[in-house]
Computed example of a mutant assay.
Amino acid sequence: MSDREPRRTEERVAADDVEGRRALHRRGFRLEGRLREARPRGDGWVDELVYARLTGDPEGPEAHRHVMNSVTPRKRLIAHALVRDEAGRVLLCETSFKDDWELPGGIVEPGESPRDACAREMVEEMGFAPGVRGVLVVDWLAPYRGWEDAVELVFATDPVVELDKPRLRPDGHEILALHWLTVPEAQAKMTPFGRRGWRPRWRRRTRAPRSTPRRAWSVTDTGELIHASGRHPLRRLAAGAVPAAGLGSPT
């Protein structure tokens, strides 16, 4: 037997017991999990929520912040990449766990930036990650085949040149093969919500890349955002402000 004092106090409450949950929140208990149909009620069962508090947990306003962080919804974030070759074709991954194919990328880990997650997933799935650029698409994905809903970011990448293509190798576990496809061919292989992202701006991105890339927008010394086509300023930035990084060019 250990002589150490217990540091953990655990409480369980029915998932639909609103007052019971609020009482635990006021006492500084954090939500740690959900047990499906763990509590009998009448002729059926209800889910049970597991709350806990440790001896060293903070008190007062700081405790409230931790409690609210534990009980507020956490939505999955997925970072995908629109990878092109010099001919403008799109790279799709043939997976081992579903029939449809998908863009390279995956789930962003807690505390990880979406851009870093996109690069990491490409290395894990296909052994190589071209440079990750700005965000092309932000979309909401509805629940699908056992997955809860999620938010998807699709990043543009540097084009993959012929010399780099031999570096692309599927991991052999989740990813069985990699395919370079035209836009119509890729659309036919993706899920309905995956195809939904193929808007005209995507099609523009899948054309053969320019030999000399240029910035579509620039900021003048007076804070005006000017398009390279010579059109009038889109808007004036607040003093000292800079455009948001990593969100792509305004359209």
Rank of each mutant, 00 (worst) to 15 (best):
Q187R: 15
G197I: 14
C118Q: 09
H173T: 12
G127C: 05
R84A: 03
R84Q: 04
D85G: 01
P209A: 11
F97D: 07
R199W: 04
E112C: 11
S70H: 00
A142C: 01
R196K: 14
E152Q: 15
V83Y: 07
R196E: 04
G146F: 03
R120V: 07
R203W: 07
R195K: 09
L77V: 14
L82V: 10
P166G: 07
Y144E: 04
P114Y: 02
E162Y: 04
V138A: 12
K75W: 05
W140P: 00
L82F: 02
V132L: 10
V160R: 13
T206W: 04
W180M: 11
V137W: 06
V123G: 02
I107P: 00
E185F: 02
G197V: 12
G194Q: 05
H173M: 13
E109R: 15
E148A: 04
R195C: 08
D139I: 03
E162V: 06
R145H: 09
W101N: 07
R167E: 03
P170S: 06
M122K: 06
E148T: 08
G105Y: 10
R115C: 06
D116K: 15
W202C: 02
V151R: 08
P166L: 08
A79N: 01
P209I: 13
K98F: 11
G88H: 02
V161N: 13
L77D: 01
R145Q: 13
W180P: 08
L82P: 03
R199L: 09
A87N: 06
F128E: 06
P73M: 05
A79T: 09
V83I: 12
A142S: 10
V154H: 06
A208T: 03
W140F: 15
W198S: 05
V161G: 01
E125T: 02
T206P: 05
R84H: 07
P192F: 03
L92H: 08
A117Q: 09
E102P: 01
D164H: 11
V160H: 12
F193Y: 10
R169Q: 15
R120Q: 02
I78M: 15
H179E: 15
D139E: 14
D85R: 04
E102A: 11
A177F: 06
P184G: 09
Y144M: 12
P143Q: 04
R115W: 10
A188Q: 12
R204A: 08
E86F: 05
R120W: 07
F128I: 12
G111Y: 09
